[in-house]
Design a protein around this nucleic acid. Structure first.
Lengths: 127, 127, 127, 127
DNA sequence: GTGGTCTAGACCACG
DNA sequence: GTGGTCTAGACCACA
């Protein structure tokens, strides 16, 4: 379910956090739904359990996840409101601004930038 | 000229490096053109001169900048080739992929994502 | 009779243990008196029966409760001595020290702290 | 400056968090003031640096502390408002409720409870 | 079975 | 010098 890139600049625990946040906001993880256990995620991606645990704990602190004692983590009930359209646009806003600034600094034609992004959004599901 | 966000996740010296790289590739910094001095950048943005110096030095190591004794740094002559169309698309490619994945995870409609990006690219110069 | 807060930092089984200990020491649970059954407590508070059982078992190990075959748990006869004034003050001592340190670190005026505590002790029975 | 009890039920990193929160709210740590470094706290109390780091990081996440890159942690500027009287009483409220309930369950006389607390608040500074 | 905590030690990034 | 990240491994607490 998660997509980890061990060598990326973004730390692993933060990659997990951001993906979970988006999957919850996007509705692919419903309120109350259980997440894969710390140990499972760790073994699947060959990373340290503490790294996963750190991500989950911080998401708990943010109110995105809830701890069910002895039964793992689940999407928090009150995280449901996080799926509002407004909130979802907030999560992608910074990314759009970064790309816009890069395009401007590179003096790339807006039309072609949009074209490339369109193709990436359509085809990427496979990878 | 530069846009620094202290407190951002991306380290300051890297913000400088990436912006300079893009401005050179985009042609807004021409070969031979002088860059603002380390001290000037540092004082304008209230950051440590060592941070600016580190960014400049690494760009020199990459062949993007050249050191002119007693006269500061300038865009390297051989950096001209860095402005090829292919190279410029390489610099923005990762950003586009990131945004595409975020949109997919958030289940946001592609059309509206493109629309928002279009508006950002047109209007942003002001900020 | 019991007051359970799932989700609190203090584990549930320990919440049960401490409350029973205090009710016994305070005389609200008399020697020989029966406690609500594991199943009853579990269903009333929607918690796992094993959690209740664990609390009762440990209290039995401490000599506070006794197991009556086929009839559940009751306050141990020899637990009577636990109600001495000295013992009761021991049970509240740590709590008082914690509050005193918090008040000091928050630089709150002692008089008002006492005032608020007085009101809480008088009115709380309702909740 | 901090008071760590290694054997306590409350985890060490949480002891640190709560004390810092209270010292900030109480004004003993002013906005902008630097905290002792992770390594310093760790060596003084003979605990692992990661334990201290965890506390600091979570306080940063809560907005109580700010990271000054390469220069350690400091009390966040926006944490100043955290020192309002209302906020300080919020921090001690739960502790007062706990004590009040314990006193009631133990059937201890309110006057004497208050008396003991008064003495603790006056004399404790020494330890 | 679940997550939490702590340790020890290594390496990196930043200024 | 500062904090951050990750690993490996141990033990505990909870249900």
């Amino acid at each position: 379910m998660l997509h980890i890139q061990p060598g990326a600049a973004e730390p692993i625990y933060r990659q997990i956090m951001e993906q979970v946040r988006r999957l919850v906001a996007g509705g692919q993880l419903q309120a109350g739904q259980e997440l894969p256990s710390v140990r499972e995620v760790a073994s699947v991606h060959a990373i340290n359990p503490m790294t996963v645990s750190k991500a989950y704990s911080q998401l708990e602190g943010e109110g995105v996840l809830e701890r069910r004692r002895g039964k793992g983590m689940a999407v928090a009930a009150r995280a449901a409101g996080k799926g509002s359209a407004g909130h979802r646009w907030e999560l992608i806003g910074p990314g759009l601004q970064v790309v816009a600034r890069q395009a401007r600094e590179l003096e790339l034609p807006a039309d072609e930038v949009l074209d490339r992004l369109r193709r990436l959004m359509k085809s990427e599901p496979g990878e």
